[in-house]
Design a protein around this nucleic acid. Structure first.
Lengths: 135, 135
DNA sequence: CACCATAATGGGAATCGTTCCCATAACGCA
DNA sequence: TGCGTTATGGGAACGATTCCCATTATGGTG
């Protein structure tokens, strides 16, 4: 969904970055930056909030992390696979499953073309209530 | 996409609300609240910013307006038809066309069921560059 | 038409997520 | 080990949105 940028500006491996990547690797749901910042602090790997934001941004650009904007505008992050995919998100606990790309590409291209739009890109999220959260 | 709430709390028709609805009816692209606020001011129908936000919120709840969150988290609004639909948005000028629901409902239901998710809902937006904005 | 209970308004303060600034610390190649 | 450069972090700055609340306007009603 996000393209890796062509040039590779030297990116250093710092304790902070490693800590954040490690944390993200363990989580399987979307978390806000503030959330991640707090989790790191609790775990002992304190990282400045500004750094959390910066690093998260970098990870998104690299395509290693997906962002999702909540209805309140707050961004949530989650590590993701490098291939094109979409998400099935539990609206209650935010647990997330990556799902394959549906046969939508062709449809989107056609619809867009019919209206004179080019360079098409789509964005799809599926929301539901997961088994564990069902009453 | 948004359901009309069951009860109908008396909603008064004020000059401000009418002005905003009229403005929205003329526009066919997503605009930020601040944008709409400025447009109203320029046009002579000054409306307080807080009121613009409140009214916009009400219109969204009533299903008369769609919201879209930009990458920067800023919300954009646009009047919309009452039936289920999606959007084809120009990433340059934000001009928007409502497009029909693709044959996705069934796919979403199936995928969700496979993962134990219920009460499924999907959200899809298609981005592209419209004819007028193509280089 | 005047009256009233109540919902709506608006200006400014308050929130809150996110970014900026910049002096200091850490990385990694030579 | 040394050095040029990038990363860090704490606090200020920002910008969108919401809150507060005294004032005003709406829409029945008598």
């Amino acid at each position: 969904m996000t393209q890796t940028r062509p040039e590779n500006p030297p990116r250093r491996i710092t304790r902070q970055r490693s800590a954040l990547e490690a944390l993200l690797a363990e989580l399987e749901d979307f978390r806000s930056a503030q959330d991640l910042h707090a989790l790191l602090r609790d775990r002992g790997d304190g990282v400045g909030l500004a750094t959390v934001y910066r690093t998260l941004q970098a990870l998104v650009e690299e395509g290693q992390v997906d962002v999702l904007r909540g209805d309140d505008g707050e961004a949530s992050y989650r590590s993701c696979s490098p291939v094109h995919h979409h998400h099935l998100v539990c609206r209650s606990c935010r647990r997330t499953v990556e799902v394959a790309d549906p046969p939508l590409e062709r449809w989107a291209q056609r619809i867009a073309a019919e209206h004179g739009f080019a360079d098409v890109h789509h964005q799809l999220e599926v929301y539901g209530t997961c088994g564990a959260c069902a009453p």
